[in-house]
Design a protein around this nucleic acid. Structure first.
Lengths: 210, 210
DNA sequence: TTTCTAGTGTAACAAATGTTACTGTAGAAG
DNA sequence: CTTCTACAGTAACATTTGTTACACTAGAAA
């Protein structure tokens, strides 16, 4: 795992810390659309992303969902950090958007390293900061944008993290991620197609205007 | 300032840290409805709340606003932490909801103390965690609730942080905090009054059903 | 091939929210 | 006192979003 680790985190962490991670961390592979964390889970490992993208989802009491943001390589999950800090349950669901490769670090190491490695401390604080900004962006999106713009942003974000301008998803799936109904998505997608911003096929949407 | 400091943070911080705070921190008083932080500000001080409540507001490019959450005594502003970490500008506006008393800590101390005091480290991480949860709650509110429930929640939250079941605000002000129009708020308030949940007078709303 | 199912298109309608316009009124200012 | 202004009430209408119902189609399954 040493090359992958150094490739993604080498510029962040000092040598000693990299060695510790290498010694203690466990590589985990996650297939696209499989669950990494469920709401209510207790967290035992902190994930460091090496490859792929993870979708972070919030759910309300009625089971209605909403995608908050994506994690990519070099990211970790601030929610997870928060949870293992406070010994609380996960407030979010994490699902592989693509196939994902990650290094799992046992939570005890988290606070141990905080005192021991300045670079780890910076990384953790920076992660919180980044996640905070993503949450703000999520709030901006749902508070200030209408559904057509939210949809377009969703498609672009998805294209970004999958490195593919073809979106492979049904209207139903999209509607669940955006917390609206299938009919609304079909309607707005058709509108976007008429505006020349996308091109549709069954189970496939191509973004023209990336 | 020593009593106020110990009263609010004594159980959190070790003695040495308390003494440092006392030596370095500056007491600041802020009148209700005055600005502490503006969007785009560079942050030089970290605020520790002693008394009162601060309203945290997000704004989009068109100047449309949205209240995210309130800070109360014992809280600090995680956005501020984030900003001084990354030397970036403030993403939010902070306004006194009530008269506020706070201790201002120069940002250099922030990272110095992180290495020096375990209790400070915990406090900072815990603050991030708490703010993260408040952001999640904000997202739940705007994503999953309709305006009437959002309004009721807004009134209750406001009553909570001001310790007053009488809300002194115009419909216009409320509509700006919730990012909607005055007419909508008037309409929904009237509905809430008819349902017996509030009692209205000019510039004054009394919550019956707290 | 035929049958079945998931995915999509679309109309018609309902509900929630936003907008405009106009009214009346309390309280400040003169 | 009268005048002015900010605040609130409400109607009428527009827009956005949500819901129900049904038709059509591609591709899998039999």
């Amino acid at each position: 795992m040493i090359e992958e680790l150094r490739q993604n985190y080498g510029y962040l962490f000092e040598d000693e810390l990299l060695k510790e991670i290498e010694a203690i961390g466990v590589i985990k592979e996650l297939r696209a659309n499989t669950k990494l964390i469920e709401i209510g889970d207790y967290i035992k490992y902190i994930p460091l992303l090496i490859n792929g993208a993870i979708k972070i989802i919030r759910e309300d009491d009625d089971g209605d969902e909403l995608v908050l943001y994506y994690l990519e390589r070099g990211d970790t999950c601030a929610m997870t950090l928060a949870c293992c800090m406070g010994q609380t349950k996960s407030e979010i669901r994490a699902i592989g958007e693509t196939d994902v490769k990650l290094i799992m670090i046992p939570v005890q190491k988290m606070s141990e390293w905080l005192g021991k490695y300045k670079s780890w401390q910076n990384f953790i604080l920076q992660s919180y900061h980044n996640r905070m900004l993503e949450m703000l962006e999520a709030i901006d999106t749902i508070a200030f944008l209408r559904m057509d713009d939210r949809l377009l942003k969703y498609l672009r974000d998805k294209a970004m993290v999958t490195h593919d301008d073809q979106i492979h998803a049904t209207h139903k799936e999209i509607s669940e991620d955006l917390h609206t109904s299938r009919v609304v998505i079909s309607r707005l997608l058709k509108k976007l197609e008429n505006e020349g911003k996308i091109k549709m096929n069954r189970n496939n949407i191509k973004i023209i205007d990336l």
